[in-house]
């Protein structure tokens, strides 16, 4: 059993309270599914933690006609249920209902998934990238809104003096899809993830997770699709060809798969993603 009886554990009732604890050096404890494994990685648990799960506003998903707000303490399971069936959010729902396993999805939160720096295979990251989500943070100097791409890139510094509180989404997607590739049917972290979406202007947005250390947009492929004569008519095979031609990823080596494999499978995942988009649009 853990020994430090002196540990400080703040169950914040408000964002101010949480920020105060953070300012005193407390680490944010989300669902616990990553942090509680620290001792097995040879890392001590933090001396002081603060939790956000009792702040009502951070445990809700607000769905308005053109604006959706997701609290940082919302779990994957709740997120999946809240957005299911909403056109355009298929990728995000796919990420929320496909990540890890059912028990973890009932506990792991949106904030935890986005703020775990060492977790390259986070499902929500590429899904939120194609949503062009805005991340709301509470900093010691007040609230701050930042794009998800910038957040993911700069989060080691950003989170030093801030708490991620909410994620904001517009409703500007027609359809989206989340294609994850675990080595089994499910249950292990995907070795590669492609989220793909098409917006109201028929522009394609594509993001890749788990292949590199941090998820990012595949801008080269997005540009190649946009440059297709007459615009890109969704065609899975053509998308895969363009993905192969514009594959600018440097796959990371890991115990489960090497970098070559992660990079090699991307065109196939793009193909599946475009096929899923066609299917969704066909149903719409």
């Amino acid at each position: 059993m853990a020994q430090s009886v002196e540990r400080s554990f703040t169950v914040a009732g408000s964002i101010d309270e949480a920020l105060a604890a953070r300012q005193q050096g407390a680490a944010v404890l989300a669902g616990g599914t990553w942090m509680m494994r620290d001792p097995l990685r040879g890392v001590d648990l933090p001396e002081a933690v603060v939790t956000l799960h009792r702040i009502p506003a951070l445990s809700e998903v607000e769905v308005d006609p053109d604006h959706t707000v997701i609290g940082a303490a919302v779990t994957h399971a709740v997120l999946g249920r809240a957005l299911r069936g909403l056109a355009g959010f298929e990728a995000l729902v796919g990420a929320a209902v496909g990540a890890a396993n059912p028990g973890i999805r009932r506990v792991a939160t949106v904030g935890g998934n986005l703020c775990t720096l060492d977790f390259a295979a986070a499902d929500l990251a590429p899904a939120l990238l194609v949503c062009e989500a805005m991340v709301e943070m509470e900093t010691f100097d007040g609230p701050k809104l930042i794009g998800i791409s910038d957040f993911l890139r700069d989060r080691p510094t950003l989170l030093a003096d801030a708490i991620l509180t909410k994620v904001h989404l517009r409703r500007d997607l027609i359809a989206s899809a989340h294609i994850r590739l675990p080595l089994r049917m499910a249950g292990d972290y995907p070795v590669a993830i492609v989220s793909i979406a098409v917006d109201k202007d028929k522009r394609f947005r594509i993001a890749v997770g788990s292949v590199e250390a941090v998820a990012r947009r595949w801008t080269a492929l997005e540009k190649a699709l946009a440059d297709e004569p007459g615009g890109f008519a969704p065609n899975p095979e053509r998308a895969a060809e363009l993905a192969a031609e514009n594959n600018d990823f440097h796959g990371r080596d890991g115990t489960e798969a090497d970098g070559w494999y992660r990079r090699q499978v991307l065109p196939a995942l793009v193909k599946r993603g475009v096929a899923a988009l066609l299917k969704t649009e066909g149903q719409a």
């Binding site: 669902g31 616990g32 599914t33 509680m36 396993n101 028990g103 009932r106 506990v107």
Partner: peptide
């Protein structure tokens, strides 16, 4: 580590792994 499920309990009726629940 939350992978095996052998420690699953119900918390407020939901099945969750108790190994990762502080």
């Amino acid at each position: 580590e939350g992978f095996c499920g052998a420690c699953t309990v119900h918390v407020d009726g939901e099945a969750v792994p108790s190994c990762l629940k502080p």
